[in-house]
């Protein structure tokens, strides 16, 4: 009797597990499809299930790889002791300095700082107000750190970042000089040389 119960229990377990796997991957496949009427009909429960533990996106350079190089430029209001006034420094490209070591040594820790630059530039340009706010906050954090290094030992009042988006020319114009590429810019305006309020609040 006990043997029989064990046998049926094992059969149930096997079907429960493999059935569960089948259902999970059926849902994962549906979640990964482009928008379609079936996905639209079950969107709420599907996303509720998938985005709890299994959120994923495998577009990986699809449908198209990005065709813009984003970079950051920084300026700051720095105290000039000789003239007894705040002066605005020239724009400095902070992304180029981060990229150069990566181009020489392929496995480089700078890659993660660069990821932060690019993510901040991307979010800052977003149509979503929340993303733009996060992007601005990240740019401020990056700017404070970089300004501290660039204008070491000097009094800094405010920082300002310009995200630059350069469009890669089409393949047939691949020899075009980078100075002739189409450039778009977005400016943060002056930001305090101190962490933002929400960041401090998060720390409490």
């Amino acid at each position: 009797m006990l043997q029989k119960a064990k046998k049926y229990f094992l059969i149930s377990w096997v079907f429960l597990m493999w059935g569960g796997l089948l259902i999970h991957f059926a849902l994962t496949s549906l979640y990964l499809t482009p928008n379609n009427p079936l996905k639209e009909n079950v969107k709420f429960p599907l996303y509720f299930y998938m985005e709890s533990l299994f959120s994923q996106n495998w577009k990986l350079f699809a449908p198209n790889p990005t065709s813009q190089n984003a970079s950051l430029e920084l300026t700051a209001k720095v105290w000039d002791e000789s003239h007894r006034k705040w002066i605005v420094k020239d724009w400095v490209s902070i992304t180029n300095e981060t990229i150069r070591p990566i181009q020489t040594y392929r496995l480089n820790k700078n890659a993660y700082i660069l990821d932060l630059h690019l993510k901040a530039a991307d979010k800052f340009r977003s149509d979503s107000l929340e993303s733009e706010r996060i992007g601005r906050q990240m740019l401020q954090s990056i700017a404070i750190r970089e300004a501290k290094e660039i204008w070491k030992g000097q009094r800094i009042k405010a920082v300002r970042v310009r995200a630059v988006y350069a469009t890669i020319p089409p393949y047939e114009k691949r020899d075009q000089k980078s100075s002739e590429w189409r450039i778009e810019r977005k400016d943060t305006g002056w930001m305090d040389y101190s962490p933002q309020k929400d960041q401090k609040e998060g720390m409490k």
């Binding site: 932060l116 901040a120 906050q137 990240m138 990056i142 962490p195 960041q199 609040e201 998060g202 720390m203």
Partner: peptide, 16 residues
Amino acid sequence: GIWSYGNFLSSHNNGI
């Protein structure tokens, strides 16, 4: 860090 603790708390983190 650059991804502030405030950002971390305000993002939904999948509710977990």
